[in-house]
Design a protein around this nucleic acid. Structure first.
Lengths: 147, 147
DNA sequence: CTAAATTATGTCGTACGCGATATAATCATG
DNA sequence: CATGATTATATCGCGTACGACATAATTTAG
C-alpha cells in the first residue's frame, strides 16, 4: 500500500461502480434469459421490437444505443433463431426493417415475469432503485459530448 | 406502438440505464486512455496495481471483479506493452504475481489528470455524482447471489 | 505416503462493443 | 442528368466478458 492521489483509487471511482454494477446485472439476467436462448443485448433488442415492430436497424440502434457493427450480427443471430426476419425496404434498398416472427412475438409473454424475477434478487427498497435510475438517466443526458 | 406491460418497456428499466451509462463512460474514457495505449479494463487493472504492486492474478480479479479467463489475456497484453511483468510464485507455482515495470509505474503520474478530465465531461453536480456512486455501491452489495 | 479433492491460472468458444472502413443506394447540385 | 456527397447497413479487427473446461500444483484424508 502506498500514499496516492485519492482520485486514482478504484474504490473512489463512480465509473468503476458503474462498470461493475452493469456487468453484475448482466450476470443476474443470464440464467433467466438462457432459458429462452437469449443474451441480455438480444433481450434489449426484443424489448424494443415488442414495443414497436418493424423498426429499421438504425431506429433500433438509436433506442438501444448500439451501432450496426454490433446490431447486424446480433440481428442475424436472432434471425437464425427464427425470432425476427430482416426485410429490405422497397422505397430505400439501403434500409432494413426488422419484424418479429410469431415465435418472437410469443416470447414476450414468456419473458413477462423476468422484471419481477430480477427485482426479487435485490433487497434494495424500490424507492432507492427508482432514485438510482433517475440519477443514471440524468447522468446519461449530462454528458457534454461532441457528436 | 402497442399496449404493453409497463415493466417490459425499455425506458422503464433500471438495468438498461445501467448498461447504457456504463458503455457511455467507457466511450468517454477511450480518447483519454488511447493516448497512453490503454483500454478501460486495462486502466482498472493498473489502478489496482498502483495502489498495491505485486498482487496475484486472483487478488486483482477480486478487486476488479474479473476472472482469469478475462484477466490472463489482458495481463499478457499489458506485459507485451512492458507495463507489467508476470512472476511465478516460488512457494506456490500455481500463483502468478503481477509487478509493475518502471514504465508501468511512470504511467500513474501521466494518468493523474484523467479523473479530472472525466469529471469535466459532465455538468452534473458533484453531490449528485457522489450519491449516484453510493446508490450503485449499495446496489452492488444488495444482490442476493448464491456464490 | 498417496490418491482424491481443492486451488490458481490458463485455454477455448461464443457474443458482444466499437473504431475504422467498405459498399451500395439515394440525394443534392451544378 | 451526371457526379460528388450523404446515408444505411455491413464487414473487419481487436479487446473484452464469461461459462465451461483443462492443467498443474498443493492440500487433505485415509
Amino acid at each position: 500500500m502506498k500514499e496516492q492521489p485519492t482520485q486514482l483509487r478504484l474504490d473512489n471511482q463512480l465509473c468503476f461502480s458503474l462498470y461493475a454494477a452493469s456487468r453484475q446485472v448482466t450476470r443476474l439476467y443470464q440464467p433467466l434469459l438462457k432459458a429462452h436462448g437469449l443474451t441480455y443485448p438480444q433481450y434489449i433488442v426484443l424489448m424494443i421490437l415488442w414495443q414497436q415492430d418493424g423498426l429499421l436497424v438504425g431506429e433500433i440502434g438509436k433506442r438501444a444505443q448500439l451501432n450496426s457493427n454490433t446490431l447486424t450480427p446480433l440481428l442475424k443471430r436472432l434471425a437464425q433463431q427464427d425470432l425476427v426476419t430482416r426485410v429490405r425496404s422497397e422505397r430505400d434498398e439501403r434500409q432494413c426493417h426488422i419484424y418479429l416472427t410469431d415465435a418472437g412475438k410469443a416470447l414476450e409473454a414468456a419473458c413477462s415475469c423476468i422484471p419481477q424475477q430480477m427485482l426479487a434478487q435485490t433487497n434494495m427498497p424500490v424507492a432507492d432503485l427508482q432514485q438510482l435510475k433517475a440519477l443514471l438517466d440524468t447522468f446519461l443526458s449530462s454528458q457534454l459530448s461532441d457528436n
